[in-house]
Nucleic acid binder design. Structure first.
Lengths: 334, 334
DNA sequence: TTGTATGCGTTATCAG
DNA sequence: CTGATAACGCATACAA
């Protein structure tokens, strides 16, 4: 690998000058700068960012923790992140935590050792013990679509309570009285918020909250299938289900059709996220939209701002969710 | 940030001993090792992998280039990659090239500067000028699901010719004589192979190859929609379409329904990849399956092998595609 | 078993 | 404008 030393030797000058020229410093004569650049190109020089990072104390990389990169919601976030990071020449270290707290901890530790400049946490659960350490270590991080116990941190989320309310109100207005909720993992704040909002709306509307119809499950299709099977194979079952997210909703949809429950004829379904597959003509899932790509963009942008200007205030952005009514919901039959 | 110096000072010993202890070297007394570990933990020491990388000459990170992380095929690959990299404590630098050759070049350069130990290229086009440089620089790389002009490289692919043949033969056997092909980008080998195979099967079966029915488009839903609109809004149009990949096929499906062409009644559709959404009850897309997650796993595993044992031979793995017949294909009506 | 010295490739400080 | 030197944090060859 060719280094600045090689370039310096080639030209009989010092490495300092080479380094400066390569950073386009004004402290070097245009003429010599040109020479250096020419030799650098000829030799195929590629600056060692590792060495640079070591001395500059900034690695030019951010860590992105997602529970499941195959979930379009998160791959959308990743796309937004990559898009912006790209422009800055920063690297994005992808970590797939699989929703497991132990993996998450390991990854945070790995990211710290790799000296990332900041962390994008799309995978945080309510008990995120590492946040404390991160703050102590002054490593900037930002929660994306996930809140935790502590409020004095930066985050970009959508209002899950409002979103869930939108979903359930929609079902209520359609005349549904037997509404189920298949939630995400219990240790995810967004999950709990949606659950609470679901309950609140029912109560507020004078509808009964049937415990067996409100369950935490998971953000996967499999979880949706499992929960739906349990809920829908009972003799008496809900006429509408609000699912934790679109992927889960797709699982519910699958089971419904399996059981001969036509959607939306016999069962209405509402999802959450508005992943691109939700809008397919054959699917037409009613859902609550979150601007995933944009959330990713906002989060990294802020992270970079915070890196340049260390005294930038906390970013706490709560985006508004939007109900997208499509064809998996219909008036309740009587 | 706490360094080995801090630990050394704390214990009144040398940094070498600390370094050794932290690497669990046998050259240090168990007793002192324990002390060092204890202090390290107490101080919250996190090894600086950047510094370590600099001296060891290996960064513990691989670069993953994908054209579009939101395409489930690639996020599946990414999941496989992350899963294995995880276990080794390696980092995965995600690069979303957006299918653009210039981005790709920039990313490769960035990855080189970041001194990745190897590259996973899911985004290579036929003309991949940087491969030459990578080989010269002795940076291991492996093409995943993408081939280029040169054959003397490592790759994990599925047999695109066989896959496309499977798809088209399936349609022919169903009695279709007017079969269209909406391909991916022309500069992608997989795209060309599928196109060639498509043509070959038609010719071999004595069917006419209508130029207007065989077009390169792109691997996105939008590309699928656009091409399908052009192809299907003609007075005379194919009774079956083989699409470059599932995402494209979904776009075709969308347009078909828009135009009132029932699928598979009036139009049969075959996709490629078998992304998870292809199997949804409402979709039931007939497609050619590629084991994406497994391909990701194989690729990184090999990369790591190659890093440990520099003289490992080239890996050239051609997996067999598998036709998955579902409900978007039906016998041709007469 | 431990310590000393040196180097990895770069940038920054300080002279000149 | 340029150069010598130190430093970033760690690993290792060589001594002891």
């Amino acid at each position: 690998m060719v280094t600045i030393k090689d370039i310096a030797r080639e030209l009989g000058i010092s490495t300092s000058t080479v380094s400066r020229a390569l950073s386009d410093s004004p402290l070097v004569r245009e003429d010599t700068k040109r020479q250096i650049l020419r030799v650098a190109r000829r030799l195929g020089y590629q600056r060692n960012e590792l060495a640079r990072a070591l001395v500059k104390g900034t690695s030019g990389a951010v860590g992105l923790l997602v529970p499941d990169i195959t979930n379009p919601f998160f791959s959308d976030i990743a796309r937004g992140v990559a898009e912006i990071a790209d422009k800055t020449g920063a690297g994005v270290l992808l970590c797939n935590t699989d929703g497991r707290a132990d993996h998450e901890l390991d990854y945070v530790s790995l990211m710290r050792r790799k000296r990332v400049d900041g962390l994008l946490l799309c995978s945080a659960t309510i008990e995120a013990p590492y946040l404390e350490e991160l703050m102590l270590a002054r490593i900037p991080f930002i929660l994306v679509s996930r809140l935790t116990g502590r409020a004095d941190v930066s985050y970009v989320i959508t209002d899950d309570t409002a979103g869930a309310r939108l979903a359930v109100e929609h079902l209520v207005k359609l005349g549904h009285r037997d509404i189920g909720f298949i939630g995400g993992p219990e240790d995810v704040q967004a999950s709990r918020d949606r659950m609470s909002a679901y309950r609140a709306v029912l109560r507020h509307r004078g509808l009964e909250v049937t415990p067996a119809w409100a369950t935490f499950a998971g953000f996967t299709q499999a979880a949706g299938r499992k929960a739906a099977r349990e809920m829908l194979s009972q003799h008496r079952h809900p006429s509408a289900i609000f699912a934790a997210n679109d992927v889960t909703a797709l699982g519910v949809l699958e089971v419904a059709e399996e059981l001969g429950l036509t959607v939306p004829g016999k069962l209405s379904i509402v999802g959450y996220d508005d992943i691109s597959y939700a809008s397919l003509p054959r699917i037409q899932l009613t859902t609550v939209a979150q601007p995933a790509v944009e959330m990713g963009r906002i989060a990294v942008s802020w992270l970079f701002d915070a890196l340049e200007n260390p005294h930038v205030e906390r970013l706490q952005k709560v985006l508004a969710p939007r109900l997208v009514v499509r064809s998996t919901t219909a008036p309740a039959s009587r």
